[in-house]
Design a protein around this nucleic acid. Structure first.
Lengths: 116, 116
DNA sequence: GAGTTGATAAAGCGATAGGTTGATTATGGG
DNA sequence: CCCATAATCAACCTATCGCTTTATCAACTC
């Protein structure tokens, strides 16, 4: 075990974490620097507990890490975790683009053949 | 309307579409070329209707498009849709990395100050 | 036009995501 | 020690997700 299923679970959690406007807004905020739960919750028309849950989702997905400063537990965005996601997407985007180019040149070849 | 809420909804759908191992496998398959529902469903221990639903999720998210060929409705991966997602992620990843570098050079400056 | 094949629609079901409120746990200050 | 602050836990509710089975639609074949 732990072969690829864990990776799959991790991708599940990471992409699911991005599939929510509140969590994306949290990420946007955290990209500009660390912040506490209270700071993160302030702009939202939502209970602090609700935001705290969103933060836990982001943490479980590995997209953010947390430190400690007295009672506060500041959140930090992890760029490497984001990069892992773009890497996954790009694998298949690039493959698809390669296939398209292959098809294009095939059609070009066929068109040349017709002219003869 | 249509200001930014639609974009948010679109990102919701797109990232949610990626947050499932079956749908990611479908994307992986489609990156190597178009395929019909039957072809896509074949490798899965799941009803064809189940796979069809997954495909509809991918289509609603704009990640794939569909054409028509007799009774078949082949699926095609849309690389541009994938690129839009990496673009969103990279916006915040790059910003976060910029902030880290800024912090690093600040700490470097402070260390130099101490030496004096 | 009757049958066949590819794909979807509809309805139902268990699991879980996302939100609330109220109680509880740390940590620090006076 | 007592109190305030930061954050989480626990229980609960509703909506949605993922999947199944049954029935239906759409396009071709003979």
């Amino acid at each position: 075990m732990g072969n690829g299923a864990d990776q799959e679970k991790h991708l599940d959690r990471a992409f699911l974490a991005l599939a929510d406007p509140v969590r994306r807004a949290l990420i946007a905020r955290l990209s500009r620097g660390p912040a506490t739960v209270n700071e993160l919750a302030e702009p939202f028309a939502m209970s602090k507990q609700g935001v705290s849950k969103h933060i836990q989702v982001l943490e479980a997905a590995g997209l953010i890490t947390r430190s400690r400063n007295a009672q506060q537990r500041p959140c930090h965005l992890d760029p490497a975790a984001l990069e892992a996601l773009t890497a996954w997407i790009d694998t298949y985007r690039l493959e698809a683009e390669r296939q398209f180019r292959r098809l294009d040149s095939l059609m070009e070849t066929m068109k040349q053949g017709e002219k003869k």
